[in-house]
Design a protein around this nucleic acid. Sequence first.
DNA 1: GATTCGGTCTTTACAAAGTAAAGTCCGTGG
DNA 2: CCACGGACTTTACTTTGTAAAGACCGAATC
Lengths: 190, 190
Amino acid sequence: MTDTPTLLLDAVTRVIAGHGPSGVTLRRVGAEAGLSHTAAAHYYRDKPGLFTAYITRAWSQVADGVEAAAQIDDPRESMLAAAEAYAAFALEHTEAFTVMSRLELANVDTPDLWAARERGFFGVAGILERARADGWAADRELLDLIATCWGLVHGVVDLWVGGPLAAPFDGQQLVPTLRRLLDDLLDRLA
Amino acid sequence: MTDTPTLLLDAVTRVIAGHGPSGVTLRRVGAEAGLSHTAAAHYYRDKPGLFTAYITRAWSQVADGVEAAAQIDDPRESMLAAAEAYAAFALEHTEAFTVMSRLELANVDTPDLWAARERGFFGVAGILERARADGWAADRELLDLIATCWGLVHGVVDLWVGGPLAAPFDGQQLVPTLRRLLDDLLDRLA
DNA sequence: GATTCGGTCTTTACAAAGTAAAGTCCGTGG
DNA sequence: CCACGGACTTTACTTTGTAAAGACCGAATC
């Protein structure tokens, strides 16, 4: 038996899937969870508070994936695994992915949200820093490296999920394609 | 003297700047334009209709920039110019940039919106296709090339404007940095 | 065992906002 | 002079977010 707050966040997922992000209503979320329309407000204060919690959970899941990837010894495989985790999350939790970067829906000054986002970011930064320490692309600025690698990953995934790249490819191909592109990029950056 | 529909779209820009995208209200937009709260509905049917027009105009401006860049003969400079136009738009019209990818705010099935987005996309695709025809990176799949180049550009800009990269750099450095990164990428793709 | 207390969730109430419908004003063509 | 149509407003209704108070219930306390 899951607790009510989690139940409400899951209800948000289903509402987004059914009615889109702008179709999220405290009343709908309450009904979807089998509760009253003020239940979500009780736990999360208000609608932005609900979104904040939802987005924080999403980032947290992404950060978990990235940090797991950061455990891999070989920096190159580590980076590829992080990218794969990012893409997999976007495909598996499309509703969450389309909302988690929309910070205007949330209370930006929430420490938990910041922490979750930074955990994801520093995970990637750490992988690349370690790679540089290993001598790979050592002549490059760390921030340039981050921007190039993570920019490519985020950009491709974002264009794929709801962007103009959604048409030419289908979902199943995102992960292998991204791996191929990033692999190639890393080859050339070394 | 600009016409009323344009006046209303400009009002949207100011409202977003002042109250964020979720602060956009037909009533506020009307007041901002010195009109009643139903004026926007009169021209654009409803709120999604208003957003559709706003987002379409934004894409249209981006597409103009990309198509202008596509005029440049040298494919490499052409691509760099397109990226620069994209980044410049994001910096100059941040309100628009933060909203134009949020298609859930709009009526997705509007032909004008599709056309504007495709114009931007095909602009980039055309540049890279021409580059390949010139023998540059000719052994590569066109879609891979698009995904890599445009993924990098979109990813870096998106992470910069409101993303985790906003902190380490400031706005003024986005265009030169992006140019440097893309320039380097193009070097290595050739 | 009765009582208080804190937490969970609902009921009620109200203001803000989206939208439909009808109405007003006004320039243009016949 | 008058019908017509477009531009915009007024009015009215519904949905939604949010505040406030209350009902229910299990655990701690006397």
